[in-house]
């Protein structure tokens, strides 16, 4: 996969920044506007999908190796669980919005408001962005493997988790 023409490459290298920025905006303003962690995460992943289509799989693999993406994926889920557990520690109940109730009430419709909800959105955005990127990455890997002749399976595909030793 060598990527597409120079026109597509140039345009997508400008547009990817805007898409990524828009994803961050959707995540950060998740508690104020429609959207949130999941939608923003999908947009983040889609900026990488654009790169993958325009520049090919190798380029994206150098930019964001799948090992890093899978660590980000785990980190997002871990942070989300931590928000829940902090609720248990500070508020006495799992998932309780302790920031809003006690420490950081904020004013409604401001960016800093709604307590732990923006934090949860951040964690979910990270999780969804990374895992959706991995899903699409794995799909391109399988296509790559399928194009080879059957029989030569020297290089184990990045998306397959385990092989017998």
């Amino acid at each position: 996969m060598k990527g597409m023409t120079v026109i597509v490459k140039t345009v997508s290298s400008w547009v990817k920044v805007l898409i990524f920025l828009f994803g961050i905006y959707i995540i950060l303003f998740g508690h104020l506007t429609p959207g949130g962690g999941f939608a923003g995460g999908v947009i983040l992943a889609s900026s990488y999908v654009l790169l993958m289509l325009a520049f090919g799989r190798r380029f994206v693999e150098e930019n964001l190796p799948s090992s890093v993406a899978s660590k980000l994926d785990c980190l997002g889920a871990f942070l989300f669980a931590m928000v829940a557990i902090l609720g248990l520690v500070f508020g006495g109940t799992l998932f309780v919005n302790f920031l809003y109730q006690e420490y950081l009430p904020g004013t409604p419709f401001e960016l800093v408001s709604a307590g732990t909800i923006p934090l949860s959105n951040l964690a979910i955005g990270l999780k969804v962005g990374a895992s959706l990127f991995l899903v699409i990455f794995a799909l391109t890997v399988f296509r790559y493997d399928g194009s080879r002749k059957p029989g030569d399976s020297d290089e184990s595909a990045g998306g397959t988790p385990a092989t017998r030793e």
């Binding site: 899978s70 660590k71 785990c74 889920a77 871990f78 669980a81 829940a84 557990i85 248990l88 799992l94």
Partner: peptide, 20 residues
Amino acid sequence: IPLPMFVVVPLVAAFVLPAF
């Protein structure tokens, strides 16, 4: 016992372990 512990503890461990 806080009941969600039954779910949260294995879930958190499940997300930490792949980083090893």
